[in-house]
């Protein structure tokens, strides 16, 4: 595993540019994580005002994505980065797309509260919060793995997604069985299903970012492979 030392270039300006770029991704990640925390609070307490704030804040995240992308482009054009510097910039450029999509999924979940469409079933609501908390853990782990360029931490987060997937499947089965019993307000139920799907998708987005972290440190592309294959690829490189 090779970490990208950001502050050892002969050009001090380049050091600062890369450091700022990395920090801006962490800021963006922190914002999205806070959005998720606020959304869960809004669900737990049926707090429409907080959910409204989450929906509005998504614009800020969208704007961050555009700015970071522009900065990546500027650095590529001016600095012609190579090797680990190039991998860092490509990783960032791809990761922010996933982080921005996490923001979109969170916005969708928050709208359940703003539109007063939260599930009436306490079981579903509390399971939703439980998955949400696992998702927050994953997000934290992901951004931490990126900040420390820690591939082991990234793979640990990767593993967590299995728990979210199985919890999601269990909850979908339960929700559809509830839907069969209560056939009215079908649109509301569909909104709940979409929100559950969004939670599961955020976990997938975290996984994507973790794959980029492995690419950053190892230079090998581990997308679309199982966890076992990733371990094998890393072992082959060691």
């Amino acid at each position: 595993m090779r970490q990208v030392a950001l502050n050892t270039h002969i050009s001090g300006t380049f050091n600062v540019e890369l450091e700022n770029l990395r920090n801006s991704v962490l800021t963006m990640g922190g914002e999205v994580e806070q959005q998720m925390v606020d959304t869960l609070y809004a669900i737990k307490h049926n707090h429409a005002a907080i959910a409204e704030k989450v929906v509005l804040n998504d614009l800020k995240i969208n704007s961050m994505e555009i700015q970071i992308d522009e900065e990546c482009l500027r650095i590529i054009a001016k600095r012609h980065p190579t090797a680990s510097d190039l991998r860092l910039i490509m990783t960032i450029s791809k990761a922010i797309t996933d982080i921005e999509r996490m923001g979109d999924e969170i916005e969708r979940i928050a709208k359940l509260v703003t539109r007063n469409k939260l599930p009436s079933s306490d079981t579903i609501k509390s399971s939703m919060v439980k998955i949400g908390e696992q998702v927050i853990d994953m997000m934290r782990g992901t951004f931490d793995a990126f900040a420390r360029q820690d591939e082991s931490a990234a793979l640990e987060v990767y593993r967590q997604d299995n728990q979210i997937d199985s919890e999601y499947k269990r909850l979908i089965t339960y929700t559809t069985s509830e839907m069969e019993k209560i056939t009215e307000d079908m649109q509301d139920w569909l909104d709940v299903l979409w929100a559950l799907r969004s939670l599961e998708r955020i976990g997938d987005r975290c996984k994507n970012v973790c794959e980029y972290v492995v690419y950053l440190t190892r230079g090998t592309d581990v997308r679309h492979t199982s966890l076992e294959s990733i371990h094998q690829k890393i072992e082959d490189l060691t």
Partner: peptide, 18 residues
């Protein structure tokens, strides 16, 4: 060599590090 050099010395040179 320009995306994933094997040696750190190469990496330092092509990325302009000490």
């Amino acid at each position: 060599l320009f995306t994933m050099p094997e040696k750190k010395q190469t990496e330092d040179y092509i990325t302009g590090r000490y």
